[in-house]
Structures are given as structure tokens and as C-alpha cells.
Simulated scan of single mutants.
Amino acid sequence: MFHHTGKTLPATLAYSRMHMVRPREMPLPSSRRTDGSFTPRTARRIPGTNLASQSRGSLLLEMHPQFEEAPGKEQRNVKCRRMFTIVAVLLLIAGFTSTVAAQRPSLTPAGQGDSGNSTVVYVVRRGDTLSAIARRFGTTVSAIVAANPSITNRNRIYIGQRLIIPLQPAQSPPDIGPSHYLDDRSTPEAVLRSFFNAINRKEYARAYSYWEPQAAASELPPFPQFEQGYANTESVELTTGTVQSGAAAGNFFYSAPVTLVAKTSNGTTQTFVGCYTLHLANPGVQAVPPFQPMGIRSATVQPVSNNADTAALMSQACPQQ
């Protein structure tokens, strides 16, 4: 029996008090030797912590190494973590792809219109205008407005708006030969066809009028010289490429690549490739006469070989907007 302050203490408590040590060297249960004795183990103290702050699992492994995980289990855990990471990345990519696809403008068949022509549903993108959409689908602004009663202002459409586009049967461009009279200022291509129709009909005053007045004064020679410049021209064939369009401050601008094949009065043929730029002041803000229709603002045309690849040359004729 042990005595403390005159009182008898239980043997187990007395034993523990006699063997109290600092936490750094606290004896812990250990395995039994082959001779029946015990080999005490000492708990390792984590720097900056005390023994009580260690997790129960780590303390258990310090006290009983036999509970350590098998070597293969940690490898399986690493593989599982890698698999989870790969799955998470794939899900992230799939979600991003779905978002981009949802934001991409769509073009969906919509059936037959009232006139029997096919229609499609087009989702408006940034920078679109009704005139540009109409040219893209070979239709007219009036036809698009008629098919979409929600359009109250043909100069105002918004991104994401769904438009029904009536598709017209494919038609050949109007003949610009001298046997036809053509005077159309509704699109850049129409203005250029009308201009060269006037040249082919030798109606040079009408041809001169397709230029904007300010541009004619700065870009063209005086009218008598302009007229004389076509004295030896028998006819002109016109081919237009893809027209680019832009808008700024209530004005619309167009760049039209062209190929011109001119036949002269002496029987020779000359080929030219270039770019015409056209301008239209917003018709909605032209409040007083005289009204200024779409007109030619400038032209840059260069002679090329008669057997040149004019399609490739036209693709580079106009600066990209």
C-alpha cells in the first residue's frame, strides 16, 4: 500500500502518479516480448502541438502500429482521387461546351410560309441588321418584316431575337444588258447593277447619279470627262462577291468586291477586279428633302489577266471590317 497526505490510495492510481512524465516521453502500451515482458513505446510529439491535439486516428496508429492501413489501400485511394479529378474535369468541359452551344446562333427549319416558300428561324447575332440578314438569305427586308409582326422598327433588332426568314426561290441576277432598264437602289448589289446597266445603255447622266454628290465631286472627273472615259466601252459584265456591311452613327456602310469584264469597240476584252464602297444615311432620320438614297462613295479597281482566278482576287479586294 502507498500513502499520500495520510490517505490510502488505490494501487493503480498510485502507480500512474509515480510514473507521470512529460508528454514528450509518455509511455504507451506496447507489444509483448517473446519472453513475456513489455517493450514500452513513446508517443512522438508533433512540433507546435501537444499530444492532446493529435487526431484520434494518428494517436491510435502511434500506439498500435498493427492498425496501419495496408500498402495497397493508399494506392487505391490515390487512384480514386485521380479518377474523381478526371471526371470533374470532363464534367466541367461538357458544361462549358453546352453553354457555348446554347449561346451559338441557331438556324432551324420552320416549314412553309403563307406564300408557300420555305422558311427558317434565325437567331440574331451581334452586329446583325435586317438588310444584312436579308442579303444573307437572298430575301428582302420587307419580306422579313411581313413575316415577323413583332418587328415595329425595322432599324431596331436585338441579340437573341428569333426571326422567321422567308426563303425565296433562287433567281439569277437581273440582266444588265442594254435591252433592259434597271434602276434599283435597295441593296449594294442592286446599285452596282443599275450603275453598269446605265453604262451599257450609254445613259451616262444616270450612271453619274448613282454616286453620292460629295463623292462624285471628289472621286470622279467632271461629267464631260466621265462620259468620254466610256467612249470605247461596248459593254460591261459585272460579278459581285460577298458584301460586307457596318453601321455607325445612323449610317450604313458597305464594301462590295467586284469583277468587271469589259469589251471595247475594237473587240478586245479587259478584266478588272476591285472594291466599291457604298453608303446610306439612315432613311428614318432623313426628315426633309432631298432624300439621299444609297450611293457609291468610292471605287478601287485594278486590271488583271483575263484568265486570272477572279474569285480568289475578289476575296481579298475589300479590307476586312
Rank of each mutant, 00 (worst) to 15 (best):
N232T: 13
R44T: 12
R104Q: 12
R136Q: 15
A70K: 06
E68V: 05
R135K: 01
F96C: 06
P303A: 12
Y122M: 02
A102K: 10
I144C: 07
L192W: 07
R76C: 00
A190V: 01
Q302N: 13
F272W: 11
P47R: 14
F252H: 11
E234N: 10
A170R: 09
P29H: 04
G241L: 05
A299D: 05
T85C: 08
F38K: 02
F67L: 14
V145T: 13
R297Q: 14
L107A: 06
P178L: 02
T39S: 13
H279P: 00
R162D: 07
A287F: 12
R206P: 00
I46A: 13
A11K: 12
W211K: 05
A198Y: 14
L130N: 09
L280Y: 01
S150I: 04
R33M: 08
P173N: 05
S142N: 10
M18T: 08
G138H: 10
S209W: 04
Q66M: 07
S194C: 03
E203V: 04
Y15C: 03
C80M: 11
D114F: 02
P257A: 02
P224G: 09
L9V: 15
A14K: 02
P71A: 10
D128L: 07
F253G: 13
C275M: 06
S30M: 06
A198T: 00
G116E: 05
S245P: 00
Y15L: 08
P166R: 08
L278S: 06
R22F: 02
D184V: 07
N155V: 00
N197V: 03
R82T: 07
K73C: 03
H19D: 05
T12G: 07
G246D: 13
R32D: 05
M1D: 10
F253A: 12
Q244R: 10
L9N: 01
S255W: 15
R162L: 04
I176P: 02
Q171L: 07
